[in-house]
């Protein structure tokens, strides 16, 4: 082999070595950058979740504080006012004042009931004492009483509370969704069901009124007036679950999947 041929072969080999080295350097560098970017992204997500958790927890604390104030202070004052009102001898009053006295008593009773209702709604006593299923059943029964809405609950009793904080979040989501259905959907039938599958609790809310599709949900939760939906999304992020709004032939369906740890889980 001539000198020129050797030079050419060695030259090509050296050049190829350079090409491979530079390309490997670019690939290695890009992979490193990707790893760094992913780590930053993860950290950002973690921080966002911590902020959401703090916001949700503080909201819950505030609800408790308001519920306790309503129950212990406003409720006590109203009960005292009722006692005072009952202390008035109505038989000594003329007919007009008797009517006013009677009306005042009725209104006061109504206010006491309302305050108690709001206080119970804000407080999660039933949830803590009887668990998520009972709290949902109680809530659904209470809000649909005296309405045209025919509500059915079919909840999986295998579900045992593992994390009370998570149950509060699930309960609040159900409350918010149920309130929205009552306010906007004009539905006549409502079904809430739950199934526990392995480590996942699946909740389905179905109604035959006007509901939301996933696109509408995504759009509304970024609007100022979509605060309730934003709260739902925050709680879903906090629970590391998913929520899907779908429209079927007979109505609208909301599927909530939440990972839970249970003793029965495999």
């Amino acid at each position: 082999m001539s000198d020129v041929s050797t030079i050419v072969i060695v030259g090509i080999a050296v050049m190829l070595l350079m090409v491979v080295s530079i390309l490997l350097a670019v690939i290695y560098n890009q992979r490193k950058k990707d790893q760094h970017r992913k780590a930053v992204e993860q950290l950002r997500e973690q921080q966002q979740n911590q902020l959401i958790e703090a916001a949700v927890r503080s909201e819950e604390l505030e609800r408790h504080r308001i519920a306790e104030t309503l129950h212990d202070e406003v409720g006590a004052i109203l009960s005292s006012a009722k006692l005072h009102l009952l202390g008035i001898k109505s038989e000594v009053l003329d007919e007009r004042d008797q009517k006013l006295h009677e009306k005042g008593r009725e209104l006061l009773n109504e206010v006491i009931q309302k305050v108690r209702g709001i206080s119970h709604n804000l407080h999660s006593n039933i949830l803590k004492e009887f668990g998520l299923n009972e709290a949902i059943r109680h809530f659904v029964k209470k809000v649909t009483q005296g309405t045209m809405l025919q509500a059915t609950t079919a909840l999986d009793d295998n579900y045992q509370t593992e994390n009370a904080e998570n149950d509060i979040s699930i309960y609040r989501m159900v409350q918010e969704l149920m309130n929205n259905i009552l306010k906007y959907a004009n539905a006549t039938e409502f079904l809430i069901s739950s199934t526990l599958e392995g480590n996942e609790l699946n909740l389905v809310l179905f109604h035959n009124g006007d509901g939301l599709t996933q696109e509408q949900f995504e759009e509304l939760r970024f609007r100022k007036e979509g605060l309730g939906l934003k709260n739902i999304q925050n709680r879903i992020i906090l629970l590391k679950g998913t929520i899907h709004f779908t429209q079927g032939g007979e109505g609208y369906r909301i599927n909530i999947h939440v990972p839970v740890k249970t003793n029965n889980a495999a």
């Binding site: 020129v4 030079i7 050419v8 030259g11 090509i12 050049m15 190829l16 350079m18 090409v19 530079i22 390309l23």
Partner: peptide, 14 residues
């Protein structure tokens, strides 16, 4: 193009 030119360099030169 980097690969092509690297290999072509010595071929063209000699």
């Amino acid at each position: 193009i980097f690969l092509y030119e690297s290999v072509s360099f010595f071929i063209n030169l000699f």
